[in-house]
Amino acid sequence: MAYSEKVIEHAENPRNVGTLDKNDPNVGTGLVGAPACGDVMRLQIRVSDDGVIQDAKFKTFGCGSAIASSSLATEWIKGKKVEEAEAIRNVDIVNELNLPPVKIHCSVLAEDAIKSAIADYRAKQTAKRGAAE
């Protein structure tokens, strides 16, 4: 499928748009923005006790490619282990969506959002263990 079709498909029917409770200790929230274009993206994951991403939601204010990148990212990470999700690279998104060079920064934003959500989740887990001890 050409770039346009896939991106339009994701941009017009984005998957997993929404919010998870950010105070839930099993929820990690990633918040990223691109200063060069003014896009802002929030990506959230809910992780089960055995480290599997049960649910992922996002909210993106930006161009079609940014929405498509984050929509695809949430689709991919659902059901994956946190470590597997962490291994996703922006080039994977570029290849899947056939993103043109001028839109590569959108995929970078999505990769950063996944990482940032995982980092937030881990920080919460560490805090929880610290509190339990």
Binding site: Y3, P100, V102
Partner: peptide, 8 residues
């Protein structure tokens, strides 16, 4: 038109 049909 740049790669993939997007307009710059």
């Amino acid at each position: 038109e740049v790669g993939g049909g997007v307009v710059d």
